[in-house]
Each structure stands twice: as structure tokens, then as C-alpha cells.
Design a binder for these strands. Structure first.
Lengths: 214, 214
DNA sequence: TGAAACCCTAACAAATGGTAGCGGAGGGCT
DNA sequence: AGCCCTCCGCTACCATTTGTTAGGGTTTCA
């Protein structure tokens, strides 16, 4: 029987790291050699322990995933590398490719996909495929701004007034701040009431905060 | 033996979700009822399945964690809520508090902390980071979190009045609702202004929402 | 046509300054 | 124990000023 694949994990999100560790250690042919929560510790581990593969997060404080890739490339270590990233950005992906990453996986990938990819990488069969990643990204980013739907009904000026109201300003203060007449601010406020279906300042403030203003 | 805590997970990062699921299902008193990778599915699950707790990611495409909290609050469901967030930002934290979240945990928290918090929440012992934030506030010279301290300075009655104000009630409505004179409500409001160092209803409402009322 | 700015009024609500009685909690004195 | 005193929360009231709300308008510009 072949030796187990010895894996090092690096991710500053401890919960995430612990989760992945669990996931991997259920596989008979994998063995988690260590879990590290920052780039520095991970690099030290690479110096001292022997491992077949490092799975690293892209975004870590201090030394990040890209730094780790660079380090490994510079020393011509034979260790395989898989980068986990939250971001479906082509620029980041290409940077990793340039640093010789073996696979680039999004954090919203299927667990099975990670397991599968690890085995593929270990067998030298994996070619990082950006098109797949891109397609997934497009589907996911569809209409992310649900709570701005209400805001779309408001005009630019009304939105602006709403922001001031949410900051606790009076009509007079808003009028002075925006160089408007108090009457104008009153009118906008009236329209805000109508459009947002409220009838008091308190509700207006709550709506505004719900919409992410203030 | 007590029934298991039935937990629903919502996180678009499938890897992360699977990891947490693993983590939780190793605990004898937890039972993962479902794992969903977007807000829509999670909400559907909440409609159809009975669960004691939902652990949701803050950032999801479409319906996000905040939307889920809002939904639950609107329907007055008794289900407990824990938000997992990547961001250690006061604004996001407060938004969750306003929507009545039971706990707010960062993704780089220790796995043990999550487990511990779940049990605390289920026992009604956890108030979202309230004590931690308080402790921080004491250490903080600039009193960033003085609205939490402020709550402690308020009397029972004042807190009650503040809740009504945050719900958009007028002095008259509050007076009728609590069988008080309008004058009394005015006095309480006056004291609230003094204690919370504000001078308008809008600011009062914001403070109230920051404190988790409303 | 609709957004934006401006104007007006009447009614209402809130903000802010007072005053003041009642009752419970706590400290101190005899 | 008993009594006094004070503090404070809660209640209630009043007058004045300021702000908000909900109607009704007009003009300008794209």
C-alpha cells in the first residue's frame, strides 16, 4: 500500500482550518501533518517537517499564500501546492499560476472537489482550470444587492437626504449642509415617507439603517 | 437525556460549511439538520424543517446572513441565530445586534469557541459579545462603545420607554400603552437625552438600535 | 413626465427649561 | 430597633421654543 499523502494546512480562519482538517482526516490516504494560522508558522513548518502538500489560504495577515508559493518556488522544494481563495479574480489566479501553484480552488467549491483535486495534484494530473472557476463566479455574483432594491425607488437627492436624517440631523441642519431651503428638505422627507411607507422619523431612521446607510 | 440541538448551517463556502458540519457532528449533543449554500435555500429549510439553531455566514450572494436574521425576526420565530463573519467590524456587528442575533463569531475563532458559544446560546446564557464588548469599552479611553455602557445607566422604566421610542411610537402612544401621562413620558425622554447625550429622536433611535433594542 | 427646487400654512409633536409629590433603599444616630 | 435624612426612580405638570408632518402650490430642466 502506498504511503499516505502528508498535508500541511495554512489558514488564518481557525474554524475553516479545523473544518478542512476534519474533512481530510476522514480520507484513508490523507494525513494532516499540521495546521497553522499564519504564513510565518506555515513556512517554519515547511522547513522542519516533511510534507507532500500544502493547502494554503490566499489571504492571511503578514505572510500570505502568494508569499508561501514564492518561497517554495525559490527553494525548488518538491512540495505540491494548492491555494484556497475566496476571490474569483483572474488577477490573483494568474499570480498564483506564475508562482507555480498546482491548483487554485475557491472556498465555495464542493468538499468532494477538494478531495478529488488533491488526488489529481498528487498524481500530477491536474491542470488548473480558470474557466470553470470563472463560470461559477458569474453564477454566484448574480444580484447581490437585495436590500438596495428599496433604495432604487429613491432618487439620488432623496437618498442623500435620507443619509442625513439617519445621522440624526434636523431639517434645518440638512438644509444648511446641502445649501437648500428647509422647504425643500421637507418635501424630500415627505416623498421618503410615501416611498418607504412610513410616517415617522423613527421608522425612517430604522429603514435607513436597514438599508446600510448611517 | 436531553434532546439534541438541531442545527442548520448556511454558508456559500461549501468547503467551510462541510468543515463546520464535521466539527459539530462530532459533538454528542449536536445534530446537523441541513447544510445550505445560499440564503434562499436556508430560508426554505427554516420554513419546512424544525431546527433549534441556525448558524449562518454573513456574506452570501443574494439573501445574506442579515436578511436571514431579518426574516426570522419578522416572523418571530424562536430559532436561535449565530452569525459567522470574516469581518471584525463594528458596523456589521451592530447591524446583526439590531436584528437580534444571539451570537456573532469571527471565522478565525477557535473551534472550541464556536462549540462553547452554541451551548451558551442554547441555554440563553449568551448575549452577543455583550460582556466582551463591555470589557473592551472599559479599557478603551475613547469610549468607542459607550452606548453599551449607556444601557447600564438607564433605569428600567427609561429602557422601556426607549424601546417604545425605537419602535416609532409617539409620546402619546407610549403614554396610552403604558398608562402614563404624556408629561411623564416627556420627562423620561428628557432623561434619556441627558443620559445618552443626544438631542433628537433620530439619535435616540440609533442608540436604541445599537443597544439591541427595537 | 418626473425629478428637483422652492414656497406656504395649519396642526401637531418634540425639546428644553422648570417645579414637585410619593415611595423605597441605604446610611447613620440614638 | 426605631427614627431621620438623603438619594433616586417614577410620576405629573407647565410654558416656551423649535421641529415635524401633511396638505396645498409653482417653476425649471431634461
Amino acid at each position: 500500500m502506498a504511503a499516505k499523502t502528508r498535508i500541511i494546512l495554512a489558514d488564518d480562519h481557525k474554524l475553516f482550518a479545523a473544518g478542512i482538517e476534519n474533512l481530510l482526516s476522514r480520507e484513508a490516504d490523507f494525513e494532516v501533518g499540521g495546521v497553522y494560522h499564519n504564513g510565518k508558522e506555515a513556512l517554519e513548518a515547511l522547513e522542519n517537517e516533511k510534507a507532500d502538500l500544502i493547502i494554503t489560504d490566499m489571504n492571511m495577515p503578514g505572510i500570505n499564500g502568494l508569499d508561501i508559493l514564492q518561497h517554495i518556488k525559490k527553494r525548488r522544494w518538491k512540495i505540491k501546492t494548492i491555494v484556497l481563495s475566496m476571490y474569483d479574480e483572474e488577477a490573483i489566479f494568474h499570480k498564483c499560476i506564475r508562482q507555480g501553484v498546482d491548483a487554485y480552488i475557491l472556498k465555495n467549491a464542493d468538499p468532494d472537489e477538494l478531495i478529488f483535486t488533491i488526488r489529481e495534484v498528487m498524481e500530477d494530473r491536474y491542470i488548473a482550470n480558470f474557466e470553470q472557476v470563472l463560470k461559477q463566479a458569474e453564477e454566484d455574483e448574480f444580484d447581490q444587492y437585495d436590500h438596495f432594491k428599496a433604495a432604487l425607488k429613491l432618487s439620488k437627492r432623496e437618498l442623500e437626504i435620507l443619509k442625513w436624517i439617519a445621522q440624526g440631523k434636523s431639517n434645518k441642519e440638512i438644509a444648511d449642509g446641502l445649501h437648500l431651503s428647509v422647504f425643500t428638505v421637507e418635501t424630500h422627507r415627505k416623498h421618503l415617507h410615501r416611498k418607504l411607507e412610513v410616517s415617522s422619523m423613527a421608522e425612517l431612521v430604522k429603514k435607513a439603517l436597514d438599508m446600510g446607510l448611517g
